[in-house]
Amino acid sequence: MNTPRTVLVIGGGAAGSAATILLRRAGIAVDLIEAKDDWNATAGSGITLQGNALRVLRELGVWEHVEKSGYGFGAVGITAPDGTVLHVAEDLRTGGDDLPATVGMQRPQLQRILIDAVRTSGARVRLGVRAESLAQSADKGGDGVTVRFSDGTASRYDLVIAADGLGSTTRAAIGITDRPEPTGMAIWRIAAPRPAGVTRTDLAYGGPAYIAGYCPTSESTLYAYVVEASRDRASIPADSYADEMRGLAAHYGGHWPEITAHITDPAQVNYTWFDRMLVEGSWHRGRVVLVGDAAHCCPPTLAQGAALSMEDAWVLTQMLTAADTWDDALFQAYYERRMHRVRPVVEASVQIGQWQLDGVRDADVPGLMGRTMTMLRELP
């Protein structure tokens, strides 16, 4: 059989953009649709990219832009609530010794870099468009998918890659019933000016929150966050978000008073529950295959969400471009290869949070983190 040459990517986040760029580099025709008109170009506060994420970004050809736009560092500090530094640990370079251990970035800046790379790739992009239905075709041996779109058009593809996130409608449409489940924690986030002394991530444990932390994202910015037990979001008025986050952050010392002074605009504060999900058995049905958060998600306790998502895209596109035939055996091999790596990260991320929820004081958090990050140093 000839290798199929037309792919639809649903979702223009990190995973969808990565898959699009790599498939276009291989000469495969790609359409990318994104439900949001603005392509998420202004959403989010900050993101922590560890070395294995940087490795994929280098493969995408955007590492130099990321390096110039973000803030690289190689250690994490553990502090008391009053700001006293208790321990500083060197981060493992999971992307190899030629890349920083960690880069913090403003999330919208990363998205804009990926958007530019997708457009440069020559993919056809349609914004504000959703896939309304997917019909696996019976012609040509059942090797295609006819997709009807929200703008009234329809097209047939050899493969559909679902990169439409946690609430993936594609996942549900192909009969996979898994859905994200809350872990019991939630996080407040905001972007703010970076105090001159902030040159790494610092994490404070204790106080009114489970974790209070920040990550530098450029020479002048950082993003700050506090983690608490999850509450009913409907009971928290949106116009009180700044007050809520500032009330928690005010209990922390060190650089926090300077950061807290900038928590004033509720529209700039994001509140999100921690979720977990791991689709078991397979990540495909016929010629529709899941990547990224559509297949798995975990709390950001190891800062691996975007990294795993982009790794999915990298591995899948490697396998697609190397194969003469795209079939169930190929997609199952993709699933098995990724599960070997994704499962330990999801489980470790959830376990770290659960230890905090349960008040386990002698939990081996450093050991679990060290083992997991060592595994991630290997190529996916």
Rank of each mutant, 00 (worst) to 15 (best):
221 T>K: 02
136 Q>V: 09
329 A>E: 14
300 P>W: 05
354 Q>N: 10
116 D>C: 06
195 P>Q: 12
141 G>F: 02
226 V>L: 01
19 A>N: 01
357 L>P: 02
156 R>L: 04
158 D>I: 06
185 M>P: 07
347 E>L: 08
120 T>M: 13
30 V>Y: 06
265 D>T: 09
218 S>Q: 01
96 G>H: 06
83 G>I: 05
24 R>C: 09
286 G>R: 04
255 H>N: 12
43 A>Y: 12
214 Y>V: 08
157 Y>H: 08
134 L>A: 15
17 S>G: 05
297 C>Y: 00
100 P>K: 11
364 D>M: 04
288 V>Y: 04
368 L>E: 03
212 A>K: 04
3 T>D: 03
289 V>W: 03
301 T>D: 00
325 T>A: 15
27 G>D: 10
92 L>R: 14
133 S>N: 12
329 A>I: 12
37 D>L: 15
106 Q>E: 08
98 D>T: 14
258 E>Y: 06
334 Y>L: 13
42 T>S: 15
375 M>I: 11
311 E>G: 06
77 G>D: 05
290 L>G: 06
195 P>H: 12
113 I>D: 03
130 R>G: 08
198 V>A: 13
229 A>R: 07
237 P>H: 04
132 E>A: 15
368 L>S: 03
40 N>F: 15
257 P>I: 14
108 P>F: 04
167 G>V: 05
30 V>P: 01
320 L>T: 08
311 E>L: 07
361 R>L: 08
58 R>A: 12
219 E>G: 15
351 Q>N: 10
190 I>G: 15
222 L>Q: 03
249 A>I: 10
161 I>V: 14
200 R>T: 15
11 G>V: 04
41 A>K: 10
183 T>I: 08
231 R>H: 02
147 V>R: 02
68 K>N: 12
360 V>T: 10
273 W>Y: 15
196 A>N: 12
93 R>I: 10
217 T>S: 11
152 G>A: 05
129 V>K: 02
340 H>T: 15
113 I>K: 04
366 P>G: 03
2 N>P: 01
160 V>N: 02
86 L>S: 13
339 M>G: 15
285 R>V: 11
372 T>P: 00
78 I>Y: 13
117 A>D: 02
352 I>C: 04
376 L>P: 00
54 L>R: 03
234 A>D: 01
319 M>P: 02
108 P>A: 07
246 R>E: 08
214 Y>I: 06
323 A>T: 14
379 L>M: 01
377 R>Q: 11
367 G>H: 01
301 T>S: 06
224 A>I: 01
236 I>N: 03
281 G>P: 00
290 L>I: 11
243 D>Q: 10
160 V>T: 06
244 E>F: 08
347 E>H: 09
296 H>C: 00
8 L>V: 07
1 M>A: 14
29 A>P: 00
73 F>E: 04
61 G>A: 06
377 R>C: 09
196 A>M: 13
240 S>C: 05
344 P>S: 15
318 Q>S: 11
295 A>P: 00
186 A>D: 12
132 E>S: 15
179 R>M: 14
1 M>T: 14
101 A>D: 01
